[in-house]
Computed example of a mutant assay.
Amino acid sequence: MSPRRSYDQFCSAARALDAVGDRWTLLIVRELLAGPRRYTDLHADLPGVSTDMLASRLKDMERDGLTARRRLPPPGAAHVYELTPRGRELLPVLRALGEWGQDGLGERRPTDALRAHWFALPLLRALEEAGVEAGVVEVGLDEGDFHLYMGAEQGPLYGYGPAPEEPDARLALDSSTCTAVSRAELGLAEAVRDGRVEVTGDGAAAKALRENGT
Rank of each mutant, 00 (worst) to 15 (best):
W118L: 11
R170V: 03
G104K: 06
T25Q: 04
S6Y: 09
L173V: 07
V20S: 04
A16S: 12
R5T: 14
R193P: 02
L42E: 01
L91S: 08
A77Q: 10
S50Q: 07
T111K: 06
E166P: 09
P92W: 10
M1E: 15
L141W: 05
L46M: 14
T84F: 11
R30T: 00
S175T: 13
G151F: 09
L17Y: 07
A13E: 12
D112T: 07
S12P: 03
Y160H: 00
R63C: 10
G65A: 11
L171M: 14
A77S: 14
A169G: 14
T179L: 05
L186R: 06
A191P: 09
E107P: 08
Y81R: 08
R125H: 08
L209V: 03
V139H: 07
R88V: 04
L123V: 01
V29F: 07
A204N: 02
Y149I: 00
V181E: 04
R88F: 07
A78G: 04
D202Y: 02
A44W: 05
G151K: 03
E198G: 02
S175C: 11
Y7E: 13
E133D: 12
G187N: 06
G155A: 08
E185I: 03
Y81P: 13
Y39F: 15
A180R: 01
L72T: 12
E133R: 12
A204Q: 05
L72E: 14
A169K: 11
K59E: 14
A13K: 11
R88W: 09
L72P: 08
Y149R: 14
L97C: 06
L17N: 05
R86P: 04
G48R: 05
A130H: 03
A208N: 02
R37F: 03
L91M: 09
D202E: 10
T51Y: 01
L141V: 10
E89Q: 10
T177C: 13
A120W: 11
T200A: 10
A191M: 08
D41Y: 05
Y39S: 12
E62F: 09
E198T: 14
D112F: 07
R170A: 05
L17M: 15
I28K: 01
L83H: 01
G101D: 03
W100M: 06
P75V: 02
S182A: 15
H43E: 05
E62R: 14
E99Y: 04
A16F: 12
D52Q: 12
V199A: 00
Y39E: 15
A13W: 08
M61H: 11
A184I: 02
L186G: 12
E166K: 08
A113S: 15
I28M: 06
F146H: 06
P85E: 09
G151D: 10
Y7V: 02
Q154V: 06
P167L: 08
A120F: 07
D112M: 09
R115V: 03
A113N: 07
E128A: 13
M53Q: 15
A184T: 04
W100P: 01
R88T: 12
L33T: 01
L32I: 05
L209C: 02
A44L: 05
L33V: 03
